[in-house]
């Protein structure tokens, strides 16, 4: 059984508003300064948090700490992830207790080799050339005997918004039934599955019968002609849209199928789209995708009577 797969990327540049505590922290990083926050028990937590995890009390007093500190624990990262990690050569992940802080922060240490890393080693922040990237303004820490403590100066301008891109790559499998359906489209055939228990025909097929809770049964070919049960006209542009509005999106009940298939209606002005309209598939370039049906267009037959499809709304 051929199983179709396709690459898929979940990617978005998330825009994070920050509020006072995180805004000050990131505003400080832009000025190569590091701030923590005073916890209710008096300790200084870096990075700062807005509230105490145990009592829930607000934490608002920002306390500047040093940009140097001590590695408490570390682990080697032999395989930096391109485009994700701040360094492209092997480095260490480390919990670093900054001078003046009471809780360690997680960041990276560029020591060149694993042998150069040790618990208790002193490190200093190495700053990114371009700032405004949040925690990535600290490019990494590096071995250093320096001690850089804060000097009295005006508080930083809080950063208001931080963009944190996420990009994850997946390989998506279509599933056996959907693969068969899509591969048949390449041959201009529309196939579904018949439930072995209730005889209903599912197009597109699903992994099983959603009512009977049994695996999908035999493959069934259905007609490329069907009835528009209901529809809407898309006038709104949106991110990731594949067609120029306006266009009609409709539920098409193909002859021989028991489930409406969502697809596009073409070959007719959008204002003439209507419930009950009889339509047939217009095929495009053969490919194992639903887009190989470009759209459905009117057959010219008289409209189906409402009673014939009202149970499918």
């Amino acid at each position: 059984m051929t199983q179709l797969t396709a690459p898929y990327e979940l990617a978005y540049p998330y825009k994070r508003s920050l509020g006072a505590v995180l805004g000050t922290f990131f505003g400080g990083l832009k000025q190569e300064r590091i701030f923590g926050v005073r916890l209710p028990d008096g300790r200084v937590a870096v990075p700062p948090i807005e509230s105490d995890p145990v009592s829930g009390a607000d934490c608002t007093e920002m306390v500047e700490v040093g940009t140097t500190g001590v590695v408490q624990h570390w682990t080697w990262e032999p395989n930096p992830r391109a485009g994700k990690h701040t360094l492209d050569t092997p480095f260490a992940w480390a919990l670093i207790l900054l001078d003046g802080a009471d809780t360690p922060m997680l960041h990276t240490v560029d020591a060149g080799t694993e042998d150069a890393m040790s618990n208790g080693m002193r490190v200093a922040a190495r700053w990114a050339a371009e700032k405004g990237g949040g925690i990535r303004d600290i490019l990494c820490f590096e071995p250093s005997q320096a001690t850089r403590l804060p000097v009295p100066q005006a508080p930083p301008e809080p950063l208001g918004l931080l963009v944190t891109p996420i990009k994850l790559n997946y390989t998506i499998q279509a599933g056996a039934e959907m693969s068969a359906f899509l591969l048949a489209l390449e041959d201009r055939r529309i196939v579904g599955r018949r439930c072995p228990s209730c005889d209903a025909v599912f197009v597109p097929p699903r992994g099983g019968c959603t009512v009977c809770s049994v695996p999908a049964g035999d493959e069934v070919q259905v007609s490329e002609v069907g009835t528009v049960t209901t529809f809407c006209i898309i006038n709104i542009p949106f991110e990731g849209q594949m067609l120029e509005p306006p266009y009609v999106c409709a539920a098409v009940l193909l002859d021989g199928s028991d489930l409406p298939l969502f697809h596009l209606i073409g070959g007719v002005p959008v204002e003439e789209a209507r419930m009950g309209m009889r339509v047939k598939a217009v095929w495009g370039d053969p490919a194992p995708t639903l887009a190989s049906i470009r759209y459905f267009e009117p057959t010219g037959e008289p409209d189906a009577a409402y009673d014939t499809y009202k149970e499918h709304l």
């Binding site: 898929y8 279509a174 209901t230 898309i234 594949m242 409709a250």
Partner: peptide, 19 residues
Amino acid sequence: PQYPFQPPTTAGAGGYFAP
């Protein structure tokens, strides 16, 4: 999001509920 193997007609919640 444009997920593989889905119909090319997704139009958010409005596109789903308008019909």
